[in-house]
């Protein structure tokens, strides 16, 4: 047992370096997904039928394929086909981000559509342009409503990030696997790996929970605790 603890202790710095890679991966992909997902949601709700059809097609594609298939397809296929020679880490952020955009766009779309039509009408009746109404009235409300769903997306993406092991991104699982194959002691090292993932999930969800509480509109949602 002591031996196992010692192994974990020794591997920890190495694993924690993977932790920063994982965080970078997840942060980058979530950020990319957010930046693309918001205009997608807006376009799907307020755009004409061609635009919303195009967006639906995008969502259909990225939600329809396993993440590993997407990763291989882009990393080994598409990226090199268009002459893009990306490092595994960057490619992984792109693929996870583009995929997350599909999911996030649907989170935001649901939130936008849950707002009454009256919010837009009232904004337009004051003389706001559609874009202003979306920016100042619709999105501030929709984003608040989106936090719980978005927290889900964070938790899922964090765990999906381990799949980038397959293209050699030096994240937590890749490193854990290196140690396990070198030491023939899979149990303690994968246990450590699991604990790190659980802490990251918990921490991120907790932060989003705090954020949700902080921006909560008084008189709405759960009771003050």
């Amino acid at each position: 047992m002591n031996e196992n603890l010692a192994l974990i202790y020794q591997s920890l710095p190495y694993l924690l370096k993977g932790c920063t890679i994982t965080i970078g991966l997840v942060g980058g992909a979530l950020g990319l997904g957010f930046v693309i997902g918001i205009p997608m949601a807006v376009g799907q709700v307020y755009g004409n039928k061609y635009l919303s059809g195009l967006i639906a097609l995008y969502v259909w594609f990225f939600r329809g394929l396993p993440v590993l298939v997407l990763l291989f397809l882009f990393y080994f296929g598409l990226f090199s086909l268009i002459g893009l020679n990306l490092p595994a880490f960057t490619a992984a952020i792109l693929v996870l981000g583009l995929r997350s955009a599909a999911y996030q766009s649907q989170i935001f779309r649901g939130s936008i559509q849950s707002l009454g039509e009256g919010q837009m009408l009232a904004a337009r009746s004051l003389g706001m342009k559609k874009s202003e109404a979306i920016l100042y009235i619709i999105l501030p409300q929709a984003l608040r409503i989106s936090i719980p769903g978005w927290s889900n997306e964070y938790a899922i993406l964090l765990k999906d990030s381990a799949i980038t092991y397959a293209v050699g991104v030096m994240e937590i699982l890749t490193r854990a696997n290196f140690i396990a194959t070198r030491t023939y002691k899979p149990m303690p090292i994968f246990l450590a790996c699991a604990v790190i993932f659980i802490i990251l999930t918990y921490g991120g969800v907790k932060i989003l929970d705090l954020l949700e509480n902080k921006v909560r509109i008084p008189g709405y949602g759960r009771e003050e605790r």
């Binding site: 919010q119 009408l121 342009k129």
Partner: peptide, 20 residues
């Protein structure tokens, strides 16, 4: 149209205040 709408105040049946 946005210039005209400013000059025509509208009050709705279900208020439509900006909830946030």
């Amino acid at each position: 149209i946005n210039r005209f709408r400013q000059k025509m105040g509208m009050v709705f049946q279900d208020f439509n205040l900006f909830d946030h």
